[in-house]
């Protein structure tokens, strides 16, 4: 150390106050990069959403979001996201509880968690295709239902190219994501809580109702909200599946990028902002709920 600080070239480890601005220079590459590929593009959309096509300031674009087609797109997106988030939330929690507390052999649980790490990244074209091959018109399950059980999937009214169908596909990455976040939380339930509850006369059911579930609730709610945002932002899967026949917000924005389908540049920007806003609120609520459960568990 003495040798290092003796050389005038070597920067000191503890910066003197006047050198702080200089130290910030070390972040310059990162900040420039982020500006070029993240901050400026977003800023462009933000500014554009408050401008007319000729550059005049306006709020018109946002009032344009009231257009029935756009409202329908948001409504579809919310429906799909809600179904897949609630379904993924409940299913993922049950799965996590089953593998963590159900007494299943350990390798099964490790296997499922590893698989979840992979599957939570499975979104996109291949996933949509896989479900088409499963319950699409010529899918394996569709054919088995028809040939073996004589049931026509079409006759039941279910199709993969519907809101429910999209949500079912989304579950493929929603369930694993929920599982990955909730399994550690269930593991974090301390044995002493259960014992203390039992000691005071609680049955296993009462322990879950009064203690375990309330402790997990912020995590469950928070993660479900995260799932909602996750589904809300997914474009590739939905586009591949429906080709735009069901307007979802990301699909409409995608169409707007390809050509001015909304007949208004600014409206597209406003729609993108609406999407960011929804996602942002979801993340904030998630962070808030997460803090709450961490505060509880700190003691």
């Amino acid at each position: 150390m003495t040798a290092g600080s003796a050389t005038s070239e070597a920067p000191g480890i503890r910066p003197a106050p006047r050198r702080v601005p200089l130290a910030w220079l070390g972040l310059l590459p990162f900040l420039l990069f982020s500006a070029g590929f993240l901050l400026l593009p977003i800023a462009f959309l933000v500014i554009g959403s408050f401008q007319t096509s000729t550059g005049e300031p306006t709020l018109e674009n946002y009032s344009g979001l009231g257009d029935p087609y756009i409202v329908a797109a948001f409504w579809n997106s919310v429906t799909v996201s809600l179904i897949s988030a609630v379904g993924g939330g409940i299913g993922g929690f049950l799965l996590a509880a089953a593998v963590v507390r159900g007494g299943l052999p350990r390798p099964l649980r490790t296997g499922l968690l590893t698989f979840s790490g992979v599957a939570s990244n499975f979104a996109g074209v291949p996933l949509a295709l896989a479900f088409v091959f499963t319950i699409g018109n010529n899918g394996l399950i569709t054919l088995i239902l028809k040939d073996v059980f004589g049931v026509s999937l079409k006759a039941t009214g279910f199709t993969i190219y519907s809101q429910l169908g999209i949500a079912l596909v989304y579950l493929y990455f929603q369930l694993p994501l929920m599982l990955l976040i909730v399994a550690p939380a269930i593991e974090g339930l301390r044995r002493e809580w259960r014992e203390a509850a039992e000691n005071m006369g609680a049955t296993g059911r009462q322990y879950w109702r009064h203690i375990a579930f309330p402790i997990l609730l912020p995590t469950l709610l928070g993660t479900t909200i995260l799932l909602f945002g996750n589904a809300f932002g997914a474009q590739a899967t939905a586009f591949q599946l429906t080709g735009g026949t069901i307007p979802l917000v990301p699909v409409v924005i995608g169409a707007q990028i390809r050509g001015d389908v909304l007949r208004n540049q600014g409206l597209g920007y406003a729609m993108a902002m609406g999407m960011v806003l929804v996602m942002g609120v979801m993340i904030l609520v998630y962070v808030w709920l997460r803090r709450r459960s961490e505060r509880w568990l700190r003691s």
Partner: peptide
């Protein structure tokens, strides 16, 4: 009645 080393109070 049992008292635990880690208190084991219910945090919620």
């Amino acid at each position: 009645g049992m008292v635990f080393q880690s208190y084991a109070l219910f945090p919620n």
